[in-house]
Computed example of a mutant assay.
Amino acid sequence: MTGKTHIMGGVASCTAAAYFYGYDPVFMTASGVIGALIPDICHTKSKIGRRLPILSAVISSVFGHRTFTHSLLFLLITAFAAHLYFTDQSILVGLMAGMASHLLLDAGTVNGIKLFFPSAIKVRLPLYIKTGGKAEQGVLAVLTVVSCYFIANLIA
């Protein structure tokens, strides 16, 4: 998936969680957007990879794309590290929701992800799409509608 789809996935997951569980929607959504971009640090041309080119190049050369940073192991390590630095549950849950949305969206692509890294098993959803294609535009549209729905209900 492209960066804009991941961003909207983070927004959709965080606004929904804020609505259902009463978290602060602003902090949660802001951290969710960041979380939705973090797994692509392994891709030097990604939004976050271009912002942190040296770190991205190192991670890419060591692990490759959609392996370690797209795994449950990375999600758990990030959750533990974030817990050490952030006490606000809205930020912690938002970060994890954004990262989880990223993994789910990338599992819905042709190449899938190595969710159980270091295992070589690839995980791909039964219905998958090509990154950047018309189907992804449809996913982006649905995520945008979902986000608008929950935002409207949060401010009402």
Score class of each variant (00 low, 15 high):
41 I>F: 14
41 I>L: 15
41 I>Y: 14
42 C>I: 06
42 C>F: 11
43 H>C: 12
44 T>Q: 15
44 T>V: 15
44 T>N: 12
45 K>Y: 13
46 S>H: 13
46 S>F: 12
47 K>V: 13
47 K>E: 13
47 K>N: 15
48 I>V: 14
49 G>N: 13
50 R>W: 09
51 R>H: 11
51 R>W: 13
51 R>K: 15
51 R>P: 07
51 R>A: 15
51 R>F: 13
52 L>T: 11
52 L>S: 11
52 L>E: 12
52 L>K: 10
54 I>S: 10
54 I>V: 15
54 I>P: 06
55 L>R: 08
55 L>S: 14
56 S>R: 01
56 S>Q: 04
58 V>T: 01
59 I>W: 03
59 I>M: 07
59 I>K: 05
60 S>N: 13
61 S>Y: 03
61 S>N: 10
61 S>C: 07
62 V>Y: 08
62 V>Q: 06
62 V>N: 03
63 F>K: 02
63 F>G: 05
64 G>K: 10
64 G>V: 01
64 G>C: 09
65 H>N: 08
65 H>K: 09
65 H>W: 07
66 R>K: 10
66 R>Y: 07
67 T>N: 07
67 T>H: 11
67 T>P: 04
67 T>Y: 09
67 T>C: 08
67 T>V: 07
68 F>M: 06
68 F>T: 03
70 H>W: 02
70 H>G: 05
70 H>Q: 03
71 S>C: 02
71 S>R: 01
71 S>N: 00
71 S>I: 00
71 S>D: 02
71 S>E: 00
72 L>E: 01
72 L>A: 05
72 L>W: 06
72 L>F: 07
72 L>G: 07
72 L>D: 01
72 L>T: 09
72 L>Y: 07
73 L>C: 02
73 L>Y: 02
74 F>M: 11
74 F>L: 09
75 L>R: 01
75 L>E: 01
76 L>K: 00
76 L>H: 00
76 L>T: 04
77 I>V: 10
77 I>S: 03
79 A>D: 01
79 A>C: 00
80 F>T: 08
80 F>V: 09
80 F>A: 10
80 F>W: 01
81 A>C: 10
81 A>I: 14
81 A>Q: 02
81 A>P: 00
82 A>K: 00
82 A>R: 02
83 H>L: 00
83 H>Q: 01
83 H>C: 04
84 L>G: 02
84 L>W: 02
85 Y>D: 00
85 Y>E: 00
85 Y>G: 03
